[in-house]
Write a protein that binds this DNA or RNA. Sequence first.
DNA 1: GTGTGGGGTGATAGCGATTACATGACTCAT
DNA 2: ATGAGTCATGTAATCGCTATCACCCCACAC
Lengths: 332, 332
Amino acid sequence: MNLEQVAHRAKVSTATVSRVLNNASVVKTSTRARVIKAIEELKYHPNLHARTLAGGKSRTIGMIVSNMENPFFFDIYKTVESDAHAAGFEVVVANTDYRTEQLVSSIRLMIGRRVAGLAAVVSEMEPALIEELTDSNIPVVFYDVGAPRQNITNIRVNYRRGIDKVIDYLYSLGHRKLGFVGHHAMLGPINARVKPVLDAVASYPGLEVRTAADADTLEGGRLAARALLANGEQPTAIVCVNDIMAVGALRELREQGLRVPQDVSVTGFDNVKLSEFCYPALTTVHIPRDTIGHLICESLLAKSDKTAVADHEMVIDPEFVLRDSTGPAPGR
Amino acid sequence: MNLEQVAHRAKVSTATVSRVLNNASVVKTSTRARVIKAIEELKYHPNLHARTLAGGKSRTIGMIVSNMENPFFFDIYKTVESDAHAAGFEVVVANTDYRTEQLVSSIRLMIGRRVAGLAAVVSEMEPALIEELTDSNIPVVFYDVGAPRQNITNIRVNYRRGIDKVIDYLYSLGHRKLGFVGHHAMLGPINARVKPVLDAVASYPGLEVRTAADADTLEGGRLAARALLANGEQPTAIVCVNDIMAVGALRELREQGLRVPQDVSVTGFDNVKLSEFCYPALTTVHIPRDTIGHLICESLLAKSDKTAVADHEMVIDPEFVLRDSTGPAPGR
DNA sequence: GTGTGGGGTGATAGCGATTACATGACTCAT
DNA sequence: ATGAGTCATGTAATCGCTATCACCCCACAC
C-alpha cells in the first residue's frame, strides 16, 4: 500500500496526496476529503523510511542510556519522551548496560537512523566516539560525560555539592568509618560521582572510607554491601552511589541482623521514588530528573531547528533529602 | 556522505560497495580492502532508511508495552531485546501508559516503520486496532490480550492458577476479609488478572473481598491501600495485582502503624526483583518474564522468516512464592 | 580454436515518499 | 479583451540504497 495507489484511487497525483498528508500548501476541501477517504479505505500508512529519505529530515530523536532498569534513567527518558511528543518527535532509546561495545553499536545505529538529535545519558564515552558523533553532524547533548568539551552541550550535576551535604551530615552524627558502594562502571559519571566522594572525605579529619563496587542493580548493591561488611572493620555508615544500590544494601544489612540506622546508617543518591517506599526510607540527595529531561529536549530541539545554537554547559544543583536511614554513629 | 561518494573514492561502483556492506556475493579481497578503507576515511554510516526502503525488509521489531516503569514489562523487554540482537534485529519500544490514544499512535508508528514484527504487551486493545494490525501484514504476538483470536499468536498466563494458590494460602491462615488492590486500567490483562481473583474468592465460603484501584505505580498502590483501609471494615489481608503496587501498599500500612504480617498480610504478583528486596519481602506469584520474552521473540522471528507459521496460543503456569509478608489472620 | 562456466564488477531500475517547477483555470483590475 | 496574480494540481527529479541483469575476462575441456 503506497502513495501511488492512494493517489490513483482518489484520482489525484501523488503530490496532492502528499500535500494532504503533510498539511502543506493548499488543497481544495473536496479534494482533501476524497484523498482522506481513499487513505482510510485502503488502510494506508505512510512509509516512514521513504518519508525521511525523501524529506531529508527525521522526526525522531535518539536517546542512549546506561541502564534503563535504574529508574533514574527511566525518569529522564520519560520526560524527554513527553517533551518530544509534544513537539511532534518520536524518541527511540538504546540501552548500553555500561558496555562500551553496546554503546558503540548504539551510536552507529543512531547515526544510521539519521536521528534529528541524540541524547547521551551514559557514563562511558571515549573521545573517538564523541568525534564520530560530532562528525556525523547530529545535534548531541550529553549528560555528565567526562570533562567539558567544545561543540557539545553538556548537562551536569554538581555532585560535590550533593555529596558534601551527605558527608557533612554523617560526620556531624559522629561517623568516622564510611563504606562506599559504587558500581563497576567506574568511568564518566561514576567518576563524576566517585571523585567528589573521595574529595569530600579527604576534607574531614579522621574520616576513612572503603569502597566496594558491583553492578548497578538491587542485587549489586547487596553484594557490594556484603563485601564492605566482610573485609576489615565494619563501617558505621554506608554511602551509596545511588538509591537502587542503597536499597540493595539495606537488604543485606537486614539479613545480617544489623539495624538501620541504629547499627549502620545508609544513604542513597538520586531520590528515586523507591527511596521513599523502601524501609527505612532513604536519606538521599535529590537530582531533578525532570529538569534534566527538559533541558535535554529543549536543547536538542533548538539545535535541530535553527542551525546556530551555541553549545554550552549547564550545571544542576542537587538537594539533600533527610529521611529515616541515617542516625548517630553507634556508641555516641 | 553516501554510497556513491564511497564508491567514487574506492573507484568502484555503488553495487560493489553495497556488496561489501552486506557481505553478499563475492568481492575480490583487494577490492574489499579498498572499499573498507574508503568507508573509514569518509566516516561513512549507511542510511538505514534508504536500506530498508530499497531492501524492502526491516531488521527491527517493535514492542509496545503498557508501563515500562513497572519492572515486569521491562524484564520482558530486556529478554526480547537480547534475543533480537542475537538474531541481528533491533527493537524499538513504545510506552502506552495504559492510554488508548497512545496505543493507537504507537501502533500506527510501528506500521509506518514497517517493523519486521510487533510484540504487544499491553492490557488494552480494541478489535478495530487488532484488525488494523493484521491488515498491515506485520507478524504480531500479543501478551495476554483479551479473548483468544484467530490469526494471532497469544501468550497468556494462567492467572487463575496463580491466584488460587494465594487465596488458598490466605484462607488456610484464617483470612476471611480480603482487600484487593488493582489499577485503573481495568481492561485486558487486568481483567485477566481481576476476574480470576473474583472467581477464586467466590469459591470459598465466607470469604469477602473489597476492591480499590489506582495507578500502576508505587504511589498508586499506596493510595489504593489507603482507600481500602479508610472505608468499611479493615481487611486482614491485602491482595495486590502486582508487586509494585504491593510495595506501595506496604508503605501505607507502615505509615498507619500496622505491622505486616502481624496485623495485615500482603501479597504481590509477578515476583519482580523488588519483591525480594522490600521489607518485609513479599509473598507473591512468579511469572517467568524471561520465558515470555523468549516466546515472543522466537515466535516473531519465525513468522518474519518463513511465511507459514501457524498462529497459536501459549499458556504459562505461574508459581507461588512464599516469603515474609503473609501470616495468620490476627486473633487466630 | 571454440565453447562453457564462473568469478568479479558495473549499469540501472526500483523502493515510497517529498518537493521544486510547470501548468491550467479563474479572477480581476486596466 | 488582456496580462497579472492566485489557487489548485500535476510532472518528474531526487533521496541513498538494494538487487537484477548484463558483461568481461580467463581458465579449462574437447
